[in-house]
Design a protein around this nucleic acid. Structure first.
Length: 364
DNA sequence: GCCCCTTTGAAGATT
DNA sequence: AATCTTCAAAGGGGC
């Protein structure tokens, strides 16, 4: 199954029919199910796609459409006023709120629902009662009753799902960590309009998700993964605090330089190395200069959470309002707000003056 | 076989 | 209110 299948099944109606994104090309690659390069990003994707020098197709289908037609994982996503009616027509009655289990009437599981038997962490004290049940059978029954409902994907996740295969193909990279770094830079190189599409799509995802699972809360999934990471994070944070006071290393924000397609051999460490070729760095809209070799060892002052202001956060919006007038460089504004949608801020360059992110450098 | 890595964004939790 | 934490996807790699 194509890794992007969930996304590429999105209906082309996902966006308001009245204002279809002009760059959405109808031509579809019958082979991949992707849209052909009918358009090019106005930034970043230009002659060299961020992350990869060679970008054969030179266009990136923002939304791919399967040759066989449109099938939306969230059928209701493709609708607006008719959402409820479609919901009732495409979902069996017990699936419509309050459903709790995500079988599509077609038998295809809802993308946000995974079998609780699959990839579930061992029961935790804080986990759901079902997970703490003593009887395996009881556990199974409880799990069947209460499948794991995943979080709806945010804009960037949707973007990743769509673009991952492309980056993998272009860069011959397979490591998701490396791919995600590239995708992160590409994401920032997207124009406001292009990002807006994903924000809008994500907004619809959340909307439908909330309709499908009105009682679901993100907290339901808390504590179901990343146990070790939490511990590691805590350790690292304490360690960072310790070392920062000791060595007082100058912390260099991680300014994502364009990374050329790395050989499969290159791994985590090398991912942050200087661009292998000058042109690679030059191709990066986000790369201030090709000489940012310090990116190979990005340092950070704080945690990532501290380093970046979430796009949708009040902090970000406030910061943007304050900075956009002076620098004119800011991140695109998320389109999670109808107000923003109705009156988008003036177009702004995507290049940023602020670090996109900071990564913590383990102290020596 | 599980977890980490790595990204951004949303949302819950905490301060 | 501001900040922090967790989890969404993905798959190679490490243990």
């Amino acid at each position: 199954m194509h890794p992007l299948t969930p996304l590429i099944t999105y209906s082309n109606e996902r966006f308001s029919p009245g204002s279809p994104p002009g760059h959405l090309s109808p031509d579809i690659d019958p082979k991949t199910g992707e849209q052909g390069r009918g358009q090019q990003r106005d930034r970043g994707g230009g002659s060299a796609t961020p992350g990869c020098l060679h970008s054969p197709g030179q266009g990136q289908p923002v939304y791919s459409i399967p040759p066989g037609g449109f099938r939306h994982p969230y059928p209701a996503l493709a609708m607006n006023a008719s959402m409820s009616s479609l919901m009732s027509s495409r979902f069996s009655p017990h699936m419509v709120p309050p459903p709790a289990h995500g079988l599509h009437p077609s038998g295809i599981p809802h993308p946000t629902i995974v079998s609780p038997i699959v990839k579930q962490e061992p029961a935790q004290p804080s986990a759901s009662p079902a997970a703490t049940s003593k009887s395996p059978i009881g556990v199974k029954k409880e799990e069947e009753k209460k499948p794991h409902i995943k979080k709806p994907l945010n804009a960037f996740m949707l973007y990743m799902k769509e673009m991952r295969a492309k980056v993998v193909a272009e860069c011959t990279l397979k490591e998701s960590a490396a791919i995600n770094q590239i995708l992160g830079r590409r994401w920032h190189s997207l124009s406001r309009e292009e990002q807006a599409k994903y924000y809008e799509l994500a907004r619809k995802e959340r909307q439908l998700h909330s309709q499908l699972y009105p009682t679901w809360s993100a907290r339901d999934n808390y504590g179901k993964k990343k146990k070790r990471k939490r511990e590691k994070l805590a350790q690292q944070q304490s360690h960072d605090a310790e070392t920062s006071s000791k060595s007082k290393k100058p912390c260099v924000p991680y300014l994502p330089a364009e990374k050329p397609c790395a050989s499969p051999a290159s791994s985590h460490g090398s991912m942050l190395d200087s661009p292998a070729t000058p042109s690679a760095a030059l191709a990066s809209p986000a790369a201030p200069a090709a000489t940012h070799s310090e990116q190979a060892q990005p340092l950070s002052l704080t945690t990532k959470a501290e380093a970046r202001a979430p796009l949708g956060s009040a902090a970000f919006l406030a910061g943007k309002a304050a900075s956009s007038s002076s620098s004119g460089l800011a991140r695109p504004v998320p389109f999670s707000s109808t107000a923003l949608l109705s009156s988008p801020p003036p177009a702004m360059p995507v290049l940023q003056t602020q670090p996109l992110s900071l990564v913590t450098k383990p102290a020596d």
